[in-house]
Design a protein around this nucleic acid. Structure first.
Length: 505
DNA sequence: ATGTGC
């Protein structure tokens, strides 16, 4: 990146001094007495941050009520705030640093299968087909092409939004209720910490909602873009701590697991965009200055009706995303059982990277907005008391790419420096248009063939090719050398489900 | 990311 000192007479807003503090943690000063931005990333990774991304980080840091801003190694331009940042405020809520896909998340299902059960290609092809019959991909398509999906009507859909993964909702959908204990948050509550607020808000919203029933039928679907399902072979790291964490997480070395990435689909998008429009309207109406002049950084002070409405809508969308993931995992397990009778499965964890949560930061209760960032509570963290992960830290699920692999990590005590957060994956290196220009379809498809990774696509979406993403090992080096988290296991893809040009069989 | 397609 370009580096200029704060005293640079040009004082161009796109250039900032970067003071290295060790190899992997740098500081981006914001002037005055405010705490600087914490930047996680090796020198090579810091060079990938473009000026707009850094400007978004500065705008976010200087925005009203914000006390901490962390920029992660996978950071790139986002909606107001960079994708790959953590923003903390004890006084304000910000929709931008949650984003349009409320509670976009990762989940991991450990099966009882050994890797050799899925070595042959016909078995993997049968699994791909069985999964695609249950969990459709693509925008707007809902359940149309998935004859064996669940059909969720309006009444159950409303319960999903209000209750999240309650016992009743899990039972209705055939989700093992014990999976709720393997969720970062199995249910989100309203602005007054009650579900009643959510029920009221939903009734208020319903008359204006377009095709609510159709959005509820999207429960158990992947969507498009960077969302995916991926069958993995688990390789646990060869050290005592990793082995113990793997045991607690329920990971089986040399076993088959299934990794999913998706969010809140159409309903989350509708709730988020409705909130952006409503808040942008208020800022215009009241002529309030926008942080950095950016309409995407609108906010609401806590305690106002605007903040209450946003928190409620975020919770409704988040609850859909949670149940969506749990249902996908139940349907994927059902697909495995159809092809390989007798296989069992356990949810390892479900964890978000687009959500705002109330947490204790610097001895204060604050809203921690993680936009393309993953919560990382280490062993001994007070919030993990009475959970299975009190002595290991909770599982952190980080997708890399199908060819470089993905990882399961556990936080280290050093994660305090990043408000107990790590990145959410590799991060884009090429924009979608640039990827389509720079990469060759045949080469991309051949690279999957050479790696013996099957896909449901006749042509893999080129803007999602591994080469469109940053070097995952360099990203992981940033996380580890900053002392944030340690690797527990590597996941190697054997087949991938993506929204793309679908194969015939 | 999504789709009452900005």
């Amino acid at each position: 990146m370009s580096i200029a000192t704060e005293n640079d007479s040009s004082s161009a807003p796109s250039k900032f001094q970067m003071i290295a503090d060790g190899e992997a943690t740098a500081i981006l000063p914001t002037g005055g007495k405010q705490k600087p931005i914490t930047v996680i990333g090796t020198e090579a990774i810091r060079a990938t941050f473009d000026d707009l991304c850094l400007q978004q980080a500065i705008n976010s840091r200087l925005a009203p009520g914000v006390t901490d801003l962390v920029l992660n190694p996978d950071a790139h331009c986002g909606y107001g705030a960079p994708v790959g940042c953590v923003m903390v405020s004890p006084t304000h809520i910000y929709p931008g640093p949650v984003g349009v896909d409320i509670k976009c998340s990762m989940s991991l299902l450990q099966t009882s299968l050994p890797a050799d059960a899925i070595l042959d290609r016909p078995t993997r092809r049968a699994l791909i087909n069985a999964i695609c019959e249950r969990t459709p991909t693509g925008a707007g398509r809902g359940q149309r092409n998935a004859p064996k999906s669940r059909h969720v009507g309006e009444a159950l859909g409303k319960r999903v939004l209000v209750e999240g993964a309650s016992r009743g909702v899990c039972e209705e959908l055939g989700i093992p209720p014990e999976w709720a204990a393997r969720c970062e948050d199995s249910a989100h509550v309203g602005h007054d910490d009650s579900t009643g607020a959510l029920a009221l808000r939903l009734e208020q919203l319903l008359p204006q909602m377009h095709r609510f029933d159709a959005k509820m039928t999207q429960l158990g679907s992947y969507g498009g873009g960077n969302h995916f399902g991926e069958c993995e072979v688990v390789h646990v790291e060869a050290n005592d701590r990793a082995r113990e964490a793997a045991r607690v997480f329920g990971l089986v070395d040399g076993g088959v697991a299934f990794l999913s990435h998706c969010g809140s689909r159409g309903i989350g998008h509708q709730l988020a965009s409705g909130q952006f429009k409503a808040l942008q309207g208020k800022f215009t109406q009241w002529d309030i200055p926008l942080p950095g002049g950016d309409r995407e950084l609108v906010y609401a002070p806590l305690g106002t009706p605007e903040a209450d409405a946003y928190i409620d809508d975020m919770a409704l969308g988040a609850n859909f995303a949670t149940v969506n993931h749990l249902l996908i995992n139940a349907l994927v397990l059902e697909a495995f059982q159809e092809v390989l009778p007798g296989v069992a499965g356990q949810l390892v964890y479900f964890i978000s990277h687009n959500i705002a949560r109330k947490e204790v930061v610097n001895n204060n209760i604050a809203w921690v907005h993680r936009k393309g960032a993953t919560r990382a509570f280490p062993a001994g963290h007070h919030a993990l008391r009475d959970t299975p992960f009190a002595e290991t830290g909770h599982p952190i699920l980080l997708p890399g790419n199908p060819q470089a692999g993905s990882v399961v990590m556990a936080a280290d005590a050093g994660a305090a420096v990043s408000c107990y957060s790590v990145n959410h994956g590799a991060g884009r290196q090429l924009g979608r248009k640039a990827a389509k220009r720079a990469l060759d379809q045949k080469e991309v498809d051949r690279s999957f063939e050479e790696a013996d990774i099957l896909t449901n696509c006749r042509a893999y979406p080129i803007d999602e090719a591994p080469a469109a993403y940053k070097d995952f090992d360099e990203v992981l080096r940033s996380v580890k050398s900053a002392g944030l988290a340690s690797e527990v296991a590597r996941l190697k893809a054997k087949f991938v489900i993506k929204d793309g040009d679908q194969a015939d069989d």
